[in-house]
């Protein structure tokens, strides 16, 4: 049973990292949002599984919040926003796909090395989960850095936050109150970012951040 529990947790966390790579690879906005919804769904399962094996009922609440907010509300809201924004729906990249993917692999390797070394002596499940969580965080940041489209930046930020939730679920003893407040802060971030998206679109007819830099008179 223990072996099976570990394998399933490992599978779900690894799935999160895999979906992060899927996110990195997308060049259509709607596909990106769908992949993000899939990641949030996987996260909800991962947290629920953690609740099951840790016998911590409050984690079910976290899983529920993740499922409702991140797998349903946020993707649907972003879908509608993109539809209403009416901008063209391709993801503009700064660095092309292949180097980004290679960099992502390097980051996963780095987080494995660091985490497995630093958490010497901890429970093996926690160690694996923390390593995966750090990978997801780094991949989310990588996405924010290598994409200029504002929507994909939002998605990168949200997926980064997924990594944090995974880490919080894996590290036993995270109080529920913190998780709820994190979930709400993400929601508020979504609202703020949404408003900004519309403002940017209103001004520049595009959500490409390049337009902001051009407006500031910078050249690259």
């Amino acid at each position: 049973m223990d072996r099976l529990a570990f394998d399933i947790a490992h599978f779900l966390a690894g799935g999160l990292v895999l979906i992060s790579f899927v996110l990195l690879y997308q060049d259509r906005l709607f596909a990106l949002l769908n992949a993000y919804a899939l990641q949030a769904l996987t996260l909800a399962f991962a947290v629920a599984w953690q609740a099951h094996i840790q016998e911590a009922p409050h984690l079910y609440i976290t899983a529920g919040i993740t499922l409702v907010f991140k797998a349903l509300i946020i993707p649907v809201a972003l879908h509608r926003m993109v539809a209403r924004l009416g901008v063209h729906r391709e993801v503009e990249t700064v660095v092309s796909l292949v180097p980004t993917m290679l960099g992502g692999i390097g980051l996963v390797a780095l987080s494995m090395v660091v985490m497995l070394r630093v958490t010497h002596g901890a429970d093996p499940l926690t160690r694996e989960d923390l390593a995966f969580a750090l990978s997801v965080v780094l991949l989310g940041m990588l996405m924010m850095v290598t994409r200029t489209n504002a929507v994909s930046q939002v998605v990168g930020f949200m997926s980064l936050e997924n990594g944090l939730i995974l880490a919080a679920a894996a590290a036993k003893g995270m109080p529920l109150v913190v998780e709820i407040s994190v979930a709400f802060s993400v929601l508020i971030a979504l609202i703020v970012i949404g408003i900004f998206l519309f403002r940017i679109r209103e001004r520049f007819d595009s959500v490409d951040l390049q337009a902001l830099d051009d407006f500031r008179g910078e050249t690259r």
């Binding site: 940041m141 850095v145 830099d213």
Partner: peptide, 19 residues
């Protein structure tokens, strides 16, 4: 006078270097 992207990259690079 960096762009948003470059500021983000700076933070990211600092994190990776520290790791």
């Amino acid at each position: 006078f960096l762009t948003i992207q470059q500021y983000l990259s700076l933070v990211f690079a600092a994190l990776v270097v520290l790791l």
